[in-house]
Every structure is written in C-alpha cells, then in structure tokens.
C-alpha cells in the first residue's frame, strides 16, 4: 500500500514536473507580449548619455502624481532650472517610464528660443514605477530627476 501510494504520488509528481516548465513557459509566452520597441532602462539611458555619468540634481524637477488611479493617463511635467542662452541651455529633456515595456516616452530637443526648459505631457504607465527625466545640458553633462508613481490600474491592458 505504501509502495503503491508512493509510486502513484511519484508518478504524478514526475508528470507534473515534466509538464510544469512547458506549461509555465507557454503561459508566460501567452501573457508576455513584447512591444515593437521594447527597451530596458539601462539600454535607453546608455543610448542617451553614451556612458557619461548621470547626476541626480534638484535642478531637474519632475512633477507627477504620487498615486495615479488610472495608469493610462498620468500627467508629467518636467522643468529644468537653467539659463536658455546660446552659450548655456538645456539641449534636451528625455522622459522615461522605467518599467514600461518600452521605457522611452519622449525625447524633447530644445533650443534657446524656448526661453525656458519645460515639457509636459501625459503618459501611460503599466504599473507602479519610477518616472525618470534626464536633462541633457549644452556643456555635455546629464542631470536627472525622478519620482515614484503608484498606479492602481495599469494603463497598458
């Protein structure tokens, strides 16, 4: 009896073990839809900075809601404290949603004619994550600012 139940149990466990990985991977594949522009945050940052250091700075202010009820529409506003003259200005503002399938949201290339380095938009967030803003300065340095946004309902469903 013991042997039988052992074998029975073993047999089922083995069958389960054999099936599980396949089932799991199939379920993962079905669940995980890869977007056409999938990119990780590391790759995206490296593509912008070219390996240069990224300095967190209070000059870059990113305002987004701390809790977003609807991840499909999250207002984000970035302002960079900087003069906007030919000599010294903010060349670009890059906005990233660090855990989206494609982390890139917008790359905004400014000119001194903007008068002020600011950019605002509304983005989709797949879940709770950090929103990161990188300011590319005309002297070749990169400053960053970020904020965590808690998302109650994801926006990529």
């Amino acid at each position: 009896m013991e042997r039988r139940s052992f074998l029975k149990g073993f047999g089922t466990a083995a069958a389960c073990a054999a099936l599980l990985p396949r089932m799991a991977s199939a379920a993962d594949e079905a669940k995980k839809v890869v977007g056409p522009n999938e990119m990780s945050i590391e790759t995206a940052i490296a593509a912008i900075t070219g390996g240069k250091p990224l300095t967190p700075s209070s000059k870059v202010s990113l305002s987004a809601p701390e809790i977003a009820e609807n991840g499909a529409v999250v207002p984000v506003k970035v302002t960079v404290e900087s003069p906007m003259t030919e000599k010294s200005y903010v060349k670009a503002i890059h906005v990233f949603a660090t855990k989206n399938n494609n982390v890139r949201c917008a790359n905004v290339y400014l000119t001194p004619a903007n008068g002020e380095a600011s950019f605002g938009t509304r983005i989709k967030l797949g879940g709770t994550q950090d929103v990161l803003a990188i300011a590319e300065m005309s002297d070749g340095t990169f400053l960053s600012g970020k904020q965590n946004v808690k998302v109650t309902i994801g926006g990529c469903g």
């Binding site: 522009n37 890139r104 949201c105 400014l110 983005i123």
Partner: peptide
C-alpha cells in the same frame, strides 16, 4: 523644438 515620441504617451 523637435520631439521623438513613443507609444508610452497617452
């Protein structure tokens, strides 16, 4: 201003 935008915008 030139913007490159992605599908993450609402």
């Amino acid at each position: 201003t030139k913007m490159i935008t992605w599908e993450s915008l609402s």
